[in-house]
């Protein structure tokens, strides 16, 4: 869980306008680190490695993680580059799902992602709690969060 101090910093960053010029504070909190784990056979899609540490930008383009408009390959690249003009929002779980697809997934994306979210049959836990309690893809990630993806569909 986050320390109160970190939480305050994250809140400050979230509330600031996206066009603000970089400051020393901005450089410190421009990325957050989350722990990602895979279980139930899902790790086979991610180099057979169960645990990953992932650094993500604290603010991401709004369109990138919109679950209703999954980006194309070209669009995804654009999203990762964080074009300066694009409207931004705090990084959320939907962004993480696309980020994992584009950066860590090694094979068969259709077994992980479907219609802009995780495939039915994949259970997501946010800090040991069901993501349905946390707003699913709209959950705003915080530094030090633990996100677990468990497949319930391992097999035929």
């Amino acid at each position: 869980m986050l320390s109160p101090a970190t939480h305050t910093l994250a809140q400050i960053l979230d509330s600031r306008p996206s066009t603000i010029h970089p400051t020393s504070l901005d450089i410190v909190m421009s990325t957050i680190t989350v722990k990602v784990e895979f279980g139930g056979g899902l790790e086979l899609l991610f180099s057979n490695q169960r645990s990953h540490r992932v650094a993500l930008p604290a603010r991401v383009p709004v369109s990138y993680s919109n679950p209703f408009s999954p980006p194309s390959a070209a669009g995804a690249e654009q999203g990762i580059q964080n074009s300066e003009d694009a409207p931004k929002k705090p990084v959320d779980l939907s962004y993480l799902i696309f980020w994992l697809r584009d950066n860590l997934l090694k094979e068969r994306a259709e077994l992980f992602i479907e219609n802009g979210t995780v495939r039915p049959g994949i259970l997501v836990l946010v800090n040991d709690a069901d993501w349905e309690l946390e707003g699913e893809g709209e959950y705003q990630l915080k530094d030090g969060d633990e996100i677990v993806f468990i497949s319930t569909l391992h097999g035929g």
């Binding site: 259970l123 468990i150 319930t152």
Partner: peptide
């Protein structure tokens, strides 16, 4: 299936898996 997956995860039950 969701309950089974959550119970297996929280009880540290490894799943060998089976192929399609």
């Amino acid at each position: 299936m969701k309950e089974c997956a959550a119970w297996a995860w929280w009880s540290d039950v490894p799943v060998v898996g089976k192929e399609k």
